[in-house]
Nucleic acid binder design. Structure first.
Lengths: 196, 196
DNA sequence: TGCGACGCTAAGCAAGCGCTTAGTAGCGAG
DNA sequence: CTCGCTACTAAGCGCTTGCTTAGCGTCGCA
């Protein structure tokens, strides 16, 4: 939306993201957000028309970042096997390092206003099509042993998205290790011949 | 909790489960629940002390059912390969046919009171240990090619749990088909030799 | 020096929240 | 017939909610 948010706007967006991620949209009050950003409750409305527009801004930014990262990963590799591995690695890396944002992105969709929900749904469709496309490419050339591309897309994406739910930064597992392991799992699920 | 809930209690629990699943715990009001159960707002408190105790009753029942189904599936099979396949099939079947319950079970944990949360966390730990155990058994006998049992447990469970998020009963996919496909994916992830 | 624009706060409004209170209809036991 | 219990409702209490209003200090610019 806003291409260059001010420092105060960023503080509000970060505070809202953390609160939404921890307590959910409906579990968070505008006073929570204002306090976490070090402002009075009314200051929220200087920068955002409603509490829901804060959620939309966060959700939109998160989805656009995921889509961009997936496109770059796909473009930087040649074969479906390499592409899938690189895509899942970046996707999962994002879901761990920014797991609070990822929780808002994936679990607060129901709180969006209908027109905002439609915008986000379109982005989610694009993300899914990117992964599905690579799977279909590999299946077409028999590089993947993948009988059901649609269902396997859901299975792989489900494994990735759910990382945002269970990941805990206090755990010993490094994001890179989780990302690598997820990529290996995705290649096995796709039936990649070199997927060990 | 209550071993034999009355008809009114069941209606309240069902209404609360549907509302929590659709709008989340904090997005649901006690008036929503009462109206869906065909009662006045005060009637809720005849059967449940608080709104949160409704959530706990639903969450507890859901977790206990999952645990029971997984134990039965594991006991009815002999080899780790058969056990894992059967467990994932029942687990995912539950997450599709009762996906509203599964959403409450998996995504409303943060709304539980601390002591209730501890009870639920213990059940979740048991569920995870069941799957991890089968994976470890298969890895020990080289029936599975699974280098990292802990991480693979999370990956498999993530794929299963996320079904509750994306499953839509209006879609064409039958629960049984999703369950079968998930089981096949899990066997590939585990590195089962006969997992094709 | 004056002045409007901007970023912010103190105070508060109407609505909605979880939950309580007081009372009632219906029913089985004596 | 009456008693006491259970399941329920109408009304409402105190508080919190998202958001608004009125006003204040501080800038850049004439």
């Amino acid at each position: 939306m806003d291409p260059s948010p001010s420092a105060a706007q960023r503080r509000l967006l970060d505070a809202a993201r953390d609160a939404f991620g921890a307590k959910g949209f409906h579990g968070t009050t505008t006073r929570d957000i204002a306090a976490a950003a070090g402002m009075s409750p009314a200051a929220v409305y200087v920068h955002h028309r409603t509490k829901e527009s804060l959620l939309f801004a966060i959700s939109l930014g998160g989805h656009e970042a995921s889509l961009r990262a997936l496109r770059e990963a796909a473009a930087a590799a040649d074969t479906p096997t390499e592409q899938l591995g690189a895509m899942i690695r970046t996707f999962v890396l994002g879901h761990t390092t920014d797991h609070t944002l990822a929780r808002v992105v994936n679990y607060e969709l129901a709180a969006l206003a209908p027109e905002h929900r439609a915008t986000i749904d379109a982005l989610r469709h694009d993300i899914q099509q990117l992964i599905r496309g690579v799977l279909a490419d590999g299946a077409a050339t028999d590089e993947f042993d993948c009988a059901d591309v649609g269902m396997t897309t859901n299975a792989i994406m489900g494994m990735c998205i759910d990382v945002a739910r269970w990941y805990d930064e206090r755990d010993a597992w490094a994001p890179e290790r989780i990302a690598d392991h997820s990529a290996r799992m995705a290649l096995r699920m796709a039936g990649a011949s070199s997927g060990r």
